[in-house]
Design a protein around this nucleic acid. Structure first.
Lengths: 149, 149
DNA sequence: TTTAGTTGGTATTTATAAATACCAAATATT
DNA sequence: AATATTTGGTATTTATAAATACCAACTAAA
């Protein structure tokens, strides 16, 4: 018998499976997407697929909502505080042209402009986006910022 | 006729006046205090007094709750992200001994320990606390952090 | 000393965020 | 070809955060 290891960023679960794994409804998953909390992989036919790391991210979101009692808009605001420009390495000018740099309500991946460094990037694969599979990472990121730089 | 300028950090409004200015109930003000969103001045008799800058801060909190739809716990989590240690200038050791450094749910002024630099400080008068009279300042602080250091 | 305001507490109400239910059209699967 | 699933949409329900109401004891002001 052979085992194949599936990378945890491989999109494998259709939406119904993801919903079952998280014990929530399919519609709720679409709602989280509409709110820019999650970016599932989309097939050419527009059908969604979720990876293991997507599931982890969603567990984290569920925990924030249900245990920590942080509203969806609260989570979005927290996401918006990520200093993405440091991670991407934006120049002074690039920062000032980027809506993400001044956004206080939406995560960077929800507001990237058309002339920005990130415009053509697939946010789903971006480190800035992925650093949040574990939610407490934003403050950790801020800690590192202040030490490293 | 003479005019006396009142410093905007001077505690002058009793709770009923503050409530009227904000168009909310007295109990709501006490609730915000219990949740560590605000630290009003307390007279020796335990009666509260609010300053003009307290009122501004509260307007900001009201806006976050009513307009931005961020829950109280969300606001607390956002407050907890403030890199106070940079502002206070804590050493490596001081950081690691301070509950505020690792807190993800409570603002620093709600969790300061007994052996910390801030233990004896009056948080109400602290710059870290006061920088938030204008709410969008946390991200601005992070921006400065990454540039200055 | 009489009236007004504050204290901290619990119990209740209200407003609404979050989740569910249902829909017809499109796509996937057998 | 027939069954199952997904799509995006609106309308509804549910759970609960946030605010209010009420309390007796204490303090402040006229």
């Amino acid at each position: 018998m052979m085992f194949y290891e599936i990378p945890n960023d491989e999109p494998i679960y259709p939406i119904s499976t993801a919903a079952k794994l998280l014990n929530i409804s399919v519609h709720t998953l679409r709602m989280y997407e509409k709110e820019n909390l999650i970016i599932p992989f989309k097939k050419t036919t527009n059908h969604r697929l979720y990876s293991a790391s997507d599931i982890e991210r969603l567990k984290c979101i569920r925990n924030a909502i249900n245990e920590s009692k942080i509203s969806i808009n609260g989570i979005k605001t927290i996401y918006s505080m990520m200093p993405c420009w440091e991670y991407i390495g934006c120049s002074e000018e690039e920062r000032n042209n980027c809506p993400a740099y001044s956004s206080h309500n939406e995560p960077c991946w929800a507001v990237k402009g058309v002339d920005t460094v990130c415009a053509k990037k697939e946010c789903r694969n971006c480190d800035v986006y992925n650093k949040f599979s574990e939610c407490s990472n934003i403050k950790n990121f801020i800690k590192n910022l202040s030490r490293v730089k």
